[in-house]
Design a protein around this nucleic acid. Sequence first.
DNA 1: AAGTGGTCTAGACCACTTT
DNA 2: AAGTGGTCTAGACCACTTC
Lengths: 262, 262
Amino acid sequence: MPGNLAVVGGGAPAPALATGAGNASPTFSPLYQQIKALITQSLQSGEWKPGELIPSEVELAMRFKVSQGTVRKAIDELSAENLVVRRQGKGTFVATHHEARAQFRFLRLESDSGETHYPDNRIIDVKRLRAPAEIARSLDIKSGDSVIFIKRIQSFDGAATIIDELWLPGLLFKGLTAERLIEYKGPMYGLFETEFGTRMIRASERVRAIGADADAAALLAIACDTPLLSVERISYSYGDRPVEVRRSLYLTSRHHYQNELG
Amino acid sequence: MPGNLAVVGGGAPAPALATGAGNASPTFSPLYQQIKALITQSLQSGEWKPGELIPSEVELAMRFKVSQGTVRKAIDELSAENLVVRRQGKGTFVATHHEARAQFRFLRLESDSGETHYPDNRIIDVKRLRAPAEIARSLDIKSGDSVIFIKRIQSFDGAATIIDELWLPGLLFKGLTAERLIEYKGPMYGLFETEFGTRMIRASERVRAIGADADAAALLAIACDTPLLSVERISYSYGDRPVEVRRSLYLTSRHHYQNELG
DNA sequence: AAGTGGTCTAGACCACTTT
DNA sequence: AAGTGGTCTAGACCACTTC
């Protein structure tokens, strides 16, 4: 009896899955997509935390009452989206920002010479404030809602190269203080993930060229009107929920923004 | 008799495949990767041309003497890499630059307002010259080899916005003339693909902010030193062969370079 | 009705890691 | 030896397109 389980009314205890193949319901989706959604829910809810091992394919297949191949296809997509990482012989792990591997997915600035060590961070300012209209719109919150503002400088080899200004929803990052940010070693997204349970999944960037204003010029130790890369980023967590607005200025005299067009 | 064909010395007429699973040879690779390589060869050789239908999965499975599932996995990857396009019920087609769909994979500049119509092109210059050292290095040819140089302006809504300078290997683009470029309607990569049999597969870009020099300022009708986006692209064809160097300047006062970080 | 890609299953064996 | 992901097969049925 090949074919489906959650389908035609098939076998045993009806799984929590909506209709499989052979269905014409308006909300139809393939079984593996439903499995993928269920796994994503467990990731989002924190049932399996970043860095942890998730259940094996066989185990998940039993739990969801589908074949291993179907679970496999679901995990394949999650892996392609960088939500999980597969390791042959060991298992499948929840992706985390605490890895050299993940660092550069969200930092496209590279040294012209090729060697790209991780930059030093210096926090300049951290404060709570009411969200300006435009920030609120990007974060999908109400104008005037509490947001946390962070300003910092990143340096390569001692040379100030990046000015970052971040806005985070106050609700999600309640206990975030300057001290915590300063004492923390490692990537900021790692801190957000472990301390606040918010994981950045993907981001969208708008890149422009602008001239340095007086403030930027002072911070980067360059002349006013020096051309800089302006990078406006919105980062999203599970469920395409926007959780960070970041406006950065990149000094590109010895570095460049690297991008691959597939 | 499950398992392999091209493997342990199995059944009938030995396929042209190198060893499948269960092999410890130094050059081992999974069967579906070998199939993928064979299909890629047929694409590269022009056996199936851009826009054309390739043989069905069943047919390819017979030809290569593997299961349909193995062919499927090979094509899955080719599809993910945008080398082919699958269409349910119709078949699998060789990807082509002659589609609205493909246009914006290689043009990341978008209007701030969202509406992104395709720009107008104006060819300024086309000439043969000897490759400067740096261009030659990027194109993996000898310094002094013949290259074709193209300079053009792209305009959005009548406003000059992009200056492009291209270098192409002379050997690959022998009959390319200014007339042909000017009279051609549609994307330049489409022309390269149909007229010269060279298809751009992927590209790598380095983005910087620089100030407009006198020449750029005149062409874009802006002031000298206006900040511009400098985009240096190297495009690759099959087999990671570099076939285009492009240096562009983007005016980003009303447009931005859009990038998604996965 | 026939052909195509898309989904799902079941089972085998492989490569890799850990016990 | 046992467990995990990775590959491969064979066969069923589905959704979509074309004849």
